[in-house]
């Protein structure tokens, strides 16, 4: 025999609990969209996995000096961040690539604030002695036309490709600037984040991967040569001077010209105080 009363109480209290938490949430959101700077302001930052460490460190430092503002940082990929901006679930989208034409069409008033300079590094296993690689070779490797290290002057071993998921800004950048818009090889493994690529390459003698320079520990980064030039190592001087072929700007995007707490945060990020956080996070400050 089931006793109905406890069940009823449980059901009713559950319904109430969810209703209450829902109401609380929507009130919090309303506050965030209000605009003016006031105590307890919340700003959400979502997007590029490459930028998530940078954004967290910026947020931590900012909240120490500006106790009135709470920043919520999450990753997911540049595309995810921009999609969140589109359906108004975030205030700022981190993007490691510029908006594409379709996104630009959907967010006509969007403002991209360049916050740092990033160089994409090409990683190999630390025992791999490959001295350098040209952009053309890199394209052939990741398109699956070069499948053995011996074709690049290395040992007779197969090449295992590590790439990123297709929602990644790094993926989009690499596809456009290195592969010339061509597809990655079907055999390229797609991993959810630069840290996963680093982990995979660090454990695979045959592996090659790409990702932000800020992550390159445990793997060897290979200097990249342009068609005519000498190999260039991914360093600050080479990235800021434009010599290194794989560098890009990291952006924080807002729906429209930023206001209120969002604006205060973005202004701080591009100020010398904010830019001081960029280098420890593994990127280069804006030149």
């Amino acid at each position: 025999m089931i006793r109905p009363l406890p069940l009823l109480v449980a059901v009713v209290s559950l319904v109430f609990a969810s209703a209450c938490s829902g109401g609380h949430r929507s009130r919090a959101r309303a506050g965030a969209e209000g605009g003016a700077v006031q105590a307890g302001e919340r700003v959400s930052v979502k997007g590029s996995d490459t930028m998530v460490v940078l954004a967290q460190q910026l947020a931590e430092r900012y909240m120490q000096t500006h106790p009135g503002t709470g920043l919520e940082v999450s990753g997911g990929g540049s595309g995810t961040g921009i999609a969140a901006l589109l359906n108004r679930t975030t205030d700022i989208a981190d993007a490691s690539r510029p908006l594409n034409a379709r996104e630009r069409g959907q967010l006509p008033a969007a403002v991209e604030t360049r916050v740092a300079l990033d160089a994409l590094a090409v990683y190999v296993h630390h025992t791999n002695r490959l001295p350098s690689v040209t952009m053309a070779q890199l394209a052939l490797v990741f398109r699956g036309r070069i499948t053995n290290w011996s074709e690049l002057g290395g040992e007779d071993r197969p090449i295992v490709l590590y790439s990123r998921e297709n929602n990644s800004g790094t993926y989009a950048y690499f596809k456009e600037h290195v592969l010339g818009g061509n597809d990655f090889a079907a055999a390229a493994q797609t991993l959810p984040g630069t840290a996963a690529v680093i982990h995979a390459v660090a454990h695979d003698r045959n592996g090659i991967g790409y990702g932000g320079i800020g992550f390159g520990t445990g793997v060897r980064t290979v200097p990249v040569a342009t068609e005519d030039g000498a190999p260039v190592a991914p360093t600050l001087e080479n990235a800021t001077s434009g010599l290194y072929p794989l560098s890009r700007f990291l952006c924080m995007v807002t729906r429209e010209p930023p206001t209120g707490a969002t604006r205060a945060f973005l202004d701080w990020v591009v100020s010398p105080e904010g830019q001081a956080v960029v280098t420890p996070a593994g990127f280069y400050p804006m030149p």
């Binding site: 995810t80 379709r102 998921e165 929602n167 493994q189 959810p192």
Partner: peptide, 22 residues
């Protein structure tokens, strides 16, 4: 011994990014 991409993994990793309706 080759890699493989499943239907479920594809949905999980790509749905967060796509533009609704395309």
């Amino acid at each position: 011994t080759s890699s493989a991409r499943t239907v479920t993994a594809t949905i999980a990793s790509e749905l967060g990014e796509v533009t609704p309706g395309d």
